[in-house]
Simulated assay, not measured.
Amino acid sequence: MILRATLCLLCLASPLRAGVPEALTGHILPGYAGFAEAAGDLAEAARQDCTAPALRARYQLAFDAWTVVGDIRMGPSETGALAVVFWPDARGFTPRTLQGFIADQAPVGRDPAAYAEASIAARGLFALEQMLYGAEFAGYAPGSYACALVQTMTADMAAQAQALQDGWRDGFAPVLLSAGGPGNASFLSETEAMAALYTQVMSSLEVTADTRLGRPLGSFDRPRPTRAEAWRAGRSLRNVLLYARAARDLAVMLAPGPLPQTDAALARLEELAGRVSDPGLQDLDDPAARLRLEIVQQQVRTLRDTIGAELGAPLGLSAGFNSADGD
């Protein structure tokens, strides 16, 4: 109730067009709250039973929750998101770091408070994916160091999720809502705030097309399926769809009216994704499977272009730089 009242007062005090407060209250803030809750549930489940089979369902729910806001890289998330999703890991830092912790029985692996200072390669969803699904990690026994490490990792991620929620709710949301107001050096006008959120939408779809799909596709002669996001957990295609839906949902919150062409483009993307046979994208040496995924990639780009034409162009918005663009 306090948060809702605060936001309402800020909205009344701010000259912002409706899209920014709606994006915050209808998508961004609930998204971070949802991830904090799911990460907390995963950490609690790990305290009860830290074995990999017992945690996989909760892990999948936490990853689902993350995708709602996972491609938003501004404010507290510009750097904070890296402790949740260190990916791509082109040099294999994550498995090597985890192997080192386990081999050395590193004390940091039993200390959630100290783990906040550990390498980001050993933190968050992709480090947990290795522990819960990786063939070289997931067979650990109850009471083992690896089991304690997973408890520490889930507690650390829950703390990071809470920090992101708090940072947005208590710090960055009021900055966005007061764009153009006295003393706001981050957003000098209403348009700047709107453009910053629009950039998150467009950059997310670009990352999905170029990185989430482009990396495993590789080239026709050399596909790279093990470069797919979260392939061990079998959710590479699911991530493509969830991030696309999140981008569409944020675009809808920013829009002054319905986005029927955008909705149709997303529906078409979901239809085409339904033809992909392997959710982990590990069958790309099959030319037919590769073609189906290339068509999905094209449709992600179509969705991006459609949002640009239906939302960005009428409002005079263009996408700027996003820190996720360099992933």
Results as ranks from 00 to 15, higher is better:
Ile2Ala: 13
Arg4Cys: 11
Ala5Phe: 10
Ala5Trp: 13
Cys8Val: 14
Cys11Ser: 14
Pro15Thr: 12
Leu16His: 06
Ala23Leu: 09
Leu24Asp: 03
Ala33Gly: 15
Gly34Cys: 03
Phe35Asn: 07
Glu37Leu: 12
Ala39Lys: 08
Gly40Asn: 09
Asp41Arg: 15
Leu42His: 01
Ala43Glu: 05
Ala43Phe: 12
Asp49Ala: 11
Thr51Lys: 06
Ala54Glu: 05
Leu55His: 02
Ala57His: 08
Leu61Val: 10
Ala62Ser: 12
Asp64Ser: 12
Ala65Lys: 07
Thr67Phe: 05
Gly70Val: 14
Gly70Phe: 11
Asp71Trp: 02
Met74Gln: 07
Trp87Asn: 01
Gly92Pro: 09
Phe93Ala: 06
Leu98Ile: 13
Phe101Arg: 01
Pro107Lys: 15
Gly109Arg: 13
Ala116Val: 09
Ala118Thr: 00
Ser119Asn: 04
Ser119Arg: 04
Gly124Asn: 04
Met131Gly: 06
Leu132Ala: 04
Gly143Met: 09
Ser144Tyr: 07
Cys147Asp: 12
Ala148Arg: 06
Leu149Lys: 03
Gln151Val: 08
Asp156Val: 07
Ala159His: 09
Gln160Pro: 00
Gln165Leu: 04
Asp166His: 04
Pro182Glu: 15
Ser186Glu: 05
Tyr198Phe: 02
Leu205Phe: 00
Val207Asn: 09
Ala209Cys: 07
Ala209Ile: 13
Pro223Met: 13
Arg227Asn: 13
Ala228Thr: 04
Ala228Asp: 04
Ala230Arg: 03
Arg232Val: 15
Asn239Arg: 13
Val240Asp: 06
Val240Ser: 07
Leu250Arg: 09
Val252Pro: 01
Pro256Cys: 10
Pro258Asp: 11
Pro258Gln: 15
Pro260Cys: 14
Asp263Thr: 13
Ala265Trp: 02
Leu269Pro: 00
Arg275His: 08
Leu293Met: 05
Val296Asp: 02
Gln297Phe: 08
Gln297Lys: 15
Thr302Ala: 07
Thr306Ala: 09
Pro314His: 01
Pro314Leu: 02
Ala319Glu: 08
Asp325Pro: 01
Asp325Leu: 01
